[in-house]
Design a protein around this nucleic acid. Structure first.
Length: 490
RNA sequence: CGGGGUGUAGCGUAGCCCGGUAUCGCGUCUGCUUUGGGAGCAGAAGGUCGUAGGUUCAAAUCCUGCCACCCCGACCA
């Protein structure tokens, strides 16, 4: 365990990398750009999955699974989609290895595939090729599917959780009889993502729509939720795409309407990934380690026993087990850390590093008084509390911690949105304060490119609840009807 | 993919310039004392020096290829 840690304020990215490793969330794999998600990190991801899965099912979606490999010819069909991903696809060309004269394993040149297979960077192609055979009539619609899967994008520069070559995600793919219904679906899923981000991750997000430059390759419109990390950089935390009839046309998916006409199907797709782990880490953690929101913490509370003699140990552990049971009956997940190999101080530090929201310290003194020491991870506050009714105290505290974490992130986020009206100010804010910049833009893609080139800032989104307001483009001075949100992003 | 840097015990490192078989700390193991904020003392174990070649009597050290990571850039739903 590292005693001398790099602080957030000194080197944010080193702090992040260290935290991911020290808190036992993930580590680099032997393969470039890939990661091993360790049990503690995976437990958090599972909590995210459980909750999202529940929300998807509550809105009528079912899970299914499509193959990892996509024939190249399928992939080519939707041109923009193919183009958008072409540069980062891993390709399977052979199906067999063999041992050569030198007893080395080599790719068997005899086993070359007729048609190369693409390791999915996303599944629209294989899924729409399938939907073609599933859809004939308006009675077959809508199709509301989701899949939990891994995808691969051969990224040039990777960071644990934020951008890895292989990552885990869910991708929803729906098919509808008309544009309105598909749009409602697109926005519904965006709302679900936003609700999940704020209620569970405790990260406030801005819902918006992407500019054409940032729209998903193959989509008509891309909606997104954007979060702000503690270093002032934005993170795209989820996207929901209105795909129009692009994929239906590419894969020739038509249905006969009530009126008897043949029409192309309307589509959406939406996804969030293990990148949310990155958001969770970067939004809340501090120099002592991870700070987990109670709604996603694998252990919501940890009990650390304190004792000297065997007799004390027995008494303390009996009391601790009682408390554990009381809490568990109330659906609180409890870790009883009764390892005899470490001292309490060590355990305190370790569980802080791992972000457990609440900690109970219980020793002989407490047994006499009928109390425990309760410590909050988010505020570092400690208090002595009666064992009697502890379940209610803990419940209350957990929900308070969830709120506190969210509010803290929201105050930071809100104070990091800067309304800017001049190009000079734009550059200064970006340099000195980072965060979001709300500024006028003339709606021109070239202007957006130029701003990116000059400052590295991109338009994160056009917020959904945007007020219309006449103004002048921050760069060109051309007329503009609304402000958009700029930021440097991950 | 371009530029720069790094790779030595489980982790962090010294040694590399100037070649002679590897330093220190943490952790691990054993024993005793400890336990309310990262314990102390004593002893011990642990190494293909990222990897494959080359130069040399001799390579962690010099040279070349490759692999991986970090930073900057380009790229990136």
């Amino acid at each position: 365990m590292a005693f001398e840690k790099v602080k957030r304020s000194e080197n944010y990215s080193e702090w992040y990398n260290n935290l991911v490793k020290d808190a036992d969330l993930a580590e680099h794999a032997a393969v470039k750009g890939c990661m091993i998600i360790k049990p503690y990190g995976y437990a958090i991801w599972e909590k995210m999955q459980q909750q999202l899965d529940k929300m998807f099912k509550e809105t009528g979606h079912s899970n299914a699974y499509f193959p990892l490999l996509i024939p190249k010819s399928f992939f080519e069909k939707e041109e923009k989609n193919a183009e958008g991903f072409a540069k980062e696809c891993a390709v399977v060309t052979h199906y067999r290895l063999k041992v050569d004269e030198n007893r080395k394993i080599i790719v068997d040149p005899e086993a070359k595939l007729e048609e190369e297979l693409i390791i999915r960077p996303t599944s629209e192609a294989i899924i729409w090729n399938t939907y073609k055979s599933w859809i004939q009539s308006y009675r077959d619609l809508p199709i509301l599917l989701n899949q939990w899967a891994n995808v691969m994008r051969w990224e040039m520069r990777t960071r644990l959780f934020l951008r890895t070559s292989e990552f885990l995600w869910q991708e929803g793919h729906t098919a509808h009889a008309n544009a309105e219904e598909a749009l409602v679906e697109t926005k519904q899923m965006l709302d679900i993502y936003a609700e999940f981000a704020e209620t569970f991750l405790g990260v406030p997000v801005i819902k918006g729509v992407k500019t054409p430059n940032e729209t998903f390759a193959g989509a008509v419109e891309t909606y997104c939720i954007e979060g702000l990390m503690q270093d002032g950089k934005a993170l795209q935390m989820g996207t929901s795409h209105f795909l129009g009839q692009n994929f239906a046309k590419a894969f020739d998916v038509k249905f006969q309407s009530k009126e008897g006409k043949l029409e192309y199907v309307w589509a959406t797709s939406w996804g969030v990934s293990t990148r949310l782990m990155g958001a969770l880490i970067m939004a809340h953690s501090d120099d002592e380690g991870l700070v987990l929101p109670p709604n996603l913490a694998p252990h919501q509370i940890v009990i650390v026993p304190i004792y000297r003699t065997d007799e004390e140990r027995e008494n303390v552990e009996a009391a601790a087990k009682d408390i554990k049971q009381k809490l568990e009956v109330n659906n609180i997940s409890v870790k009883f850390d009764n390892r005899d190999t470490h001292k309490p101080g060590y355990k305190f530090a370790e569980w802080e590093l791992k972000g457990v929201p609440l900690r109970i310290g219980i020793g002989p003194r407490d047994i006499l008084n009928g109390t425990v020491e309760l410590a909050r991870r988010d505020t570092k506050e400690k208090s002595v509390t009666s064992i009697e009714g502890i379940e209610n105290t803990v419940k209350l505290l957990l929900s308070e911690i969830q709120t506190t974490i969210f509010n803290r992130a929201k105050i930071f986020r809100d104070s990091s949105i800067h309304e800017v009206n001049t190009w000079e100010e734009f550059q200064i804010i970006l340099e000195e304060k980072a965060g979001f910049i709300s500024a006028h833009w003339d709606g021109n893609s070239e202007t957006e490119d130029k701003i990116k080139q000059l400052t590295k800032a991109t338009i994160r989104c056009i917020p959904l609840n945007n007020l219309l307001e006449d103004g002048k483009c921050i760069l060109t001075g051309n007329p503009s009807k609304q402000r958009v949100l700029f930021a440097k992003a991950y």
